[in-house]
């Protein structure tokens, strides 16, 4: 009985474990690549949250064919397809930013970047000459 309960909610427990770990990495780690990996974990946990309820035990993938009666719910699949794409798009953009930050600051550790200027505020923009003619 307890085992059944355990099985019943195991998906959700793993979901929240992944989510917490992902969030922990994002908040605790200063390395910008690691943060993005953590963000990925965080997003992945959502996939489980959506897909698990759609599964019907004994069901088959929602591709209609002769001889099958019970299909799992197709809607979460569609939603998660979109979510995966959004996830990789975010990751790509984030990594591009990391590459540029590395070129500009020589580091991808947040602590080192912020130590160069208190929360970005104090930094002097003495070199920020504009390309066009301002006058």
């Amino acid at each position: 009985m307890i085992f059944e309960e355990f099985i019943n909610y195991y998906n959700y427990f793993i979901t929240l474990f992944l989510m917490s770990s992902g969030l922990y990495i994002v908040v605790a780690r200063g390395n910008m690549v690691k943060k993005l990996v953590g963000l990925g974990l965080f997003q992945t946990s959502v996939y489980l949250l959506y897909l698990s309820p759609g599964k019907i035990l004994g069901g088959t993938p929602p591709i209609l064919a002769e001889g099958y009666e019970v299909y799992s719910n197709p809607l979460p699949h569609v939603l998660i397809l979109t979510a995966i794409v959004v996830g990789v798009a975010t990751l790509g953009l984030g990594l591009a930013l990391v590459v540029r930050i590395h070129e500009a600051y020589g580091t991808i550790e947040e602590d080192e970047i912020f130590s160069k200027g208190d929360d970005l505020q104090e930094e002097d923009n003495k070199n920020s000459t504009l390309p066009g003619d301002a006058k």
Partner: peptide, 23 residues
């Protein structure tokens, strides 16, 4: 296992493939 074959295929190609290459 969750019957999401399309999603699995995408995750395998995007998550394991594309994301790894990018990283």
């Amino acid at each position: 296992v969750l019957d999401a074959v399309d999603v699995a295929m995408t995750e395998a190609s995007v998550g394991a493939g594309m994301s790894t290459v990018l990283l």
